[in-house]
């Protein structure tokens, strides 16, 4: 059974296309790494999974249910937890309130309190700042908080975009450790990363995206050379980003 599946998804923003018939799947309890150069459409995949961008073609399945075009809250209730790139926290709520908001949804009051304490044990940095508004945290700390929000309860599948963006080496270490724990508890993972080596070590499958299409699907070992070739192939550093007419 697949926890998450994209079937022939085409999506974009207004008139501009970012994904072209992308298919990928994350089996229950599996870890899939999604890598590729900037502008390849990785973040759009994350947004499609979260329901923030609705595909113009293709289907989105969560736990086998077709949720194409469903509102984000419906997808979240189907067991998919999203960590969007950038700031994924409520800046005006305190650290503890951010966590309570997440945990309280799914768990009873006492279980939520336990999850909260467990999270603070795992992230002492957040515990020190539990009453501070999340907006006053540094960029990296906000990132940690948005990850902590999905790590506390055990969703069916987690989609994490730009997992280690802006995190110190020690924090990256911590996050990967926590992901392993989460995975051991049965949660499937779709991890989108810029730092390919690390995530390919964690995953049991890899998908490489390039300019909106899937360039490679297979074992992680096979992905590294593909990515390296992709980044090395074109000489100018920014030719990737060349503006192109929408299809």
């Amino acid at each position: 059974m697949n926890a998450l599946e994209l079937v022939g998804v085409t999506a974009g923003y207004g008139p501009y296309r970012a994904l072209d018939e992308v298919s990928l799947s994350v089996p229950d309890g599996g870890i899939v790494a999604l890598v590729g150069p900037n502008g390849a459409g990785k973040s759009t995949v994350a947004r499609v999974c979260a329901g923030l961008v609705v595909p113009t073609e293709g289907r989105l399945l969560v736990g086998g249910d077709d949720l194409t075009g469903a509102a984000p809250w419906r997808i979240a209730r189907a067991g998919l937890a999203s960590v969007i790139e950038g700031r994924g926290v409520f800046a005006r709520l305190s650290v503890a309130e951010n966590l309570e908001l997440s945990f309280g949804r799914w768990l009873g009051p006492s279980a939520a309190a336990t999850a909260l304490e467990r999270t603070f044990d795992g992230f002492p940095m957040l515990a020190e700042r539990r009453t501070q508004p999340a907006g006053t945290l540094s960029g990296g700390q906000q990132r940690l908080l948005s990850l902590a929000k999905v790590l506390g309860d055990s969703p069916r599948v987690v989609v994490a975009d730009e997992l280690s963006l802006g995190l110190s080496p020690a924090a990256v270490e911590d996050i990967y450790l926590q992901l392993r724990v989460l995975h051991a508890a049965g949660t499937a993972l779709l991890v989108i990363e810029q730092q390919t080596d690390r995530v390919l070590g964690l995953a049991d499958r890899a998908v490489v995206l390039d300019r909106g299409v899937v360039a490679f699907t297979g074992p992680p070992d096979g992905a590294s050379p593909v990515v390296r070739r992709m980044l090395g192939a074109t000489a100018t550093p920014d030719s990737l980003a060349e503006p192109v007419s929408p299809a």
């Binding site: 974009g12 923003y13 207004g14 008139p15 501009y16 296309r17 970012a18 994904l19 072209d20 900037n38 502008g39 390849a40 459409g41 990785k42 973040s43 759009t44 969007i84 790139e85 950038g86 700031r87 300019r211 909106g212 299409v213 990737l240 980003a241 503006p243 192109v244 007419s245 929408p246 299809a247």
Partner: peptide, 22 residues
């Protein structure tokens, strides 16, 4: 000329949007 306006890395919010597809 509107086809030159492709998506944007949303200035000042710092979230990035994927580049266009050929």
């Amino acid at each position: 000329r509107s086809d030159r306006i492709v998506e944007m890395a949303t200035a000042s919010t710092g979230t990035d949007r994927d580049g266009p597809v050929a």
